[in-house]
Design a protein around this nucleic acid. Structure first.
Length: 527
DNA sequence: TTGTGTTTTATTGCCTCC
DNA sequence: GGAGGCAATAAAACACAA
């Protein structure tokens, strides 16, 4: 026995040592691993071997380290998403319109989310939110079922805040709309239609989701087709005129969108269709604060930076301030590897460099994951009026939020990063996705399946940091802070304006969800 | 100093793809 | 069936508060 034991000890001397007492990687090893990991999260056998030799580790250790490193990233992402997902769930946000994929932010939340989401509601609200202004949506939520969820799941925030937050969350977080296949759903929202992508992240939609995705997608797509691509965000309630949409009803949408952007940039304009709505967004603050105050106390002074020097045309910069601030804070809160040269770090260290870096990375990112696709779309379509329209809410918010009116010059320099890496992707057009994107969802799903074999290769371009950054972007929407008084004013001022719509909706029996008949009908039409 | 919580490392089992 | 990857788990190492 002893000989055998001795033999084994000789044979596996090193491994035994490592088995009995795990050895921490030396700083040099860790650095090498991290550096390599930043470049390639899925090293090949050769790479592993080389790295093992270089770092004096075994390939097994290398593989294990990378595996755990990926898990770590994923976990971090999930944690972040978890916080977001909680908000979403509580606010009844439909994270994955169409596919039904709600970001499984925390693994266990995968099923929980659906307790709050009726497929019909998901569908109808998805349309709602797309067709309504923020103000409309607010009432839509409060007057319908979502407030129920709010009270049930989040007692810390006012009801009014939820809808607004939902709006921003969707804009910033609803990656689904932005990306058909995101990684994050990481919850933020998972790439709705990309089940594969979801799986990659550990979000494995079970039965219900798998079926739900197709059904909802078909129904929504059909409705979207009926509505047309360009329906006004500030236009009539979808259901109100749904049955009587004249062929020319939406033909002037592009122009309107342009005007909306102008309004957004000029909040002073009385006719800005979304001013009241934007003001309502202030309600975001409550829950946001509750969450981010945990992140960093620096937010307070950071947020009060001097934005005054910025012009309306610098909207992007303004927004970037929030993004950056949030990212900085968020990173400091979540990133256990401060030394890691993540994109966020790059952002802080070198604007230009980070910008270029992220641009490259964004382009490198394949369409495999929804996030990637979304961001890519957003970045690659700067002229997309939909994106512009989506920026509207943010613009308005920026212009209305006192706490953010002022910018920190220090941050201004960083705004370029956001430009290169459009945080507005967060606000990417829901409308756009609901039409153009969704039309290709089924095809895309098929492609996902088809090209799943390429996953390994594409995976190499998955950068958790990017995903994290995107998650942070999603969080940006939440960052919109408005003091309580402003919230109150917003409510008061917007009530009169919105009341008619409210009554109109109820008069039209705005469906909390499409009836089964409608769903079936639309589904069939989509077919 | 100790207890507790977190992080990191290692192992194992399962799944998917080739 | 093998390889690669993911997830769950255990345990050591570390950090921190009382």
């Amino acid at each position: 026995m002893e000989e055998a034991t001795e033999f084994h000890s000789e044979e596996n001397k090193l491994s035994m040592e490592k088995n009995k007492k795990r050895r921490l990687k030396t700083p040099a090893q860790l650095k090498g691993l991290e550096d390599f990991y930043n470049d390639n999260k899925y090293p090949t056998e050769e790479m592993k071997s080389e790295l093992a030799d270089e770092l004096e580790l075994t390939e097994k250790q290398i593989s294990g380290w990378f595996c755990h490193r990926r898990l770590k990233d994923k976990k971090m992402l999930n944690d972040e998403v978890c916080a977001n997902g909680r908000h979403d769930r509580s606010s009844g946000v439909i994270q994955d319109r169409g596919s039904g994929l709600v970001q499984d932010s925390c693994g266990s939340t995968k099923h929980v989310d659906y307790r709050y989401l009726d497929p019909k509601e998901v569908e109808s609200h998805g349309l709602y939110n797309h067709g309504f202004s923020a103000a409309d949506m607010m009432y839509g939520h409060n007057n319908h079922h979502y407030t129920e969820n709010d009270s049930a799941t989040d007692n810390t925030s006012s009801e009014s805040s939820s809808s607004l937050q939902d709006r921003l969350l969707r804009q910033g977080k609803d990656l689904y709309d932005m990306e058909p296949s995101s990684h994050l759903t990481p919850n933020g929202s998972l790439p709705p239609l990309n089940i594969k992508g979801a799986n990659n992240l550990g979000y494995k939609p079970s039965g219900y989701l798998k079926v739900k995705g197709d059904i909802e997608h078909a129904a929504i797509t059909a409705v979207k087709k009926q509505l047309g691509k360009h329906y006004r965000e500030d236009g009539p309630l979808l259901t109100v005129e749904f049955d009587t949409i004249p062929p020319e009803a939406f033909e002037c949408q592009i122009a309107d969108l342009a005007n909306e952007a102008y309004y957004a940039a000029n909040p002073a304009l009385p006719n800005s269709p979304e001013v009241s709505a934007v003001k309502k967004q202030s309600s975001l603050s409550s829950r946001y604060d509750s969450y981010f105050t945990k992140i960093s106390s620096q937010d307070s002074h950071m947020d009060r930076g001097d934005f005054g020097s910025l012009h309306d045309s610098d909207f992007q910069d303004k927004k970037s301030f929030q993004v950056i601030n949030q990212r900085q804070n968020f990173q400091s809160f979540t990133n256990p590897l401060p030394h890691k040269n993540s994109s966020l770090d790059l952002n802080a260290d070198s604007t230009g460099e980070a910008s270029a870096y992220n641009n490259i990375k964004n382009r490198r990112k394949g369409t495999k994951h929804g996030f990637d696709g979304v961001r890519y779309d957003s970045a690659s379509n700067p002229s997309d009026h939909y994106e512009e329209n989506n920026n509207l809410a943010v613009k308005q918010t920026d212009s209305l939020l006192h706490g953010y009116e002022n910018s920190n010059l220090k941050n201004v320099q960083r705004s370029e990063y956001v430009k290169s890496k459009p945080s507005n992707s967060v606000h990417k057009s829901q409308i756009y996705l609901d039409t153009e994107e969704r039309r290709g969802l089924n095809k895309r799903m098929a492609k996902e399946e088809k090209f799943d074999g390429d996953r390994k290769v594409k995976k190499q371009y998955r950068d958790p940091d990017e995903v994290r950054a995107l998650t942070n972007e999603m969080m940006v929407a939440k960052r919109a802070k408005v003091d309580p008084l402003e919230q109150y004013d917003v409510k008061q001022s917007s009530v009169a304006e919105l009341e008619p719509r409210k009554s109109q909706r109820s008069a039209a029996e705005m469906p909390s969800s499409f009836s089964e008949d409608e769903t079936a009908e639309t589904s069939s039409s989509a077919d």
